[in-house]
């Protein structure tokens, strides 16, 4: 049993990323999509928190959402994997439950 958590809001606007990280279990995966992708970039106020969470949780960010917002996939925090929709589907299939933090 493992869970794929998705977060779709910027941590600068909403608490959903924080709530997600506060509940995700070791070996779960967290995928940042839509407006949550800004949290993945190095140099933000959340970078350290993400890097820390990445010690126990697998972190992913959706590349098409980064690109749409002019954010460089090469500049994501170390340990966050950039994936596309195919990768999103794979994660959803590999984990037994999907929890979308809204």
């Amino acid at each position: 049993m493992s869970t794929l958590h998705t977060v779709n809001k910027s941590p600068f606007e909403r608490s959903s990323l924080q709530a997600c990280l506060g509940h995700a279990q070791a070996s779960d995966s967290v995928l940042l999509i839509e407006d949550a992708v800004m949290a993945a970039l190095s140099g933000t106020a959340f970078a350290a928190k993400l890097a820390d969470a990445g010690q126990s949780i697998k972190l992913f960010v959706l590349g098409p959402d980064l690109k749409a917002r002019g954010l460089d996939p090469a500049k994501v925090v170390n340990g966050i994997t950039v994936i596309d929709y195919d990768g999103f589907v794979d994660l959803a299939a590999e984990n037994s439950t999907i929890h979308s933090w809204l």
């Binding site: 049993m1 869970t3 979308s100 933090w101």
Partner: peptide, 8 residues
């Protein structure tokens, strides 16, 4: 973590 379906 023990749930099958999570609806939010």
């Amino acid at each position: 973590a023990g749930m099958d379906v999570v609806l939010t």
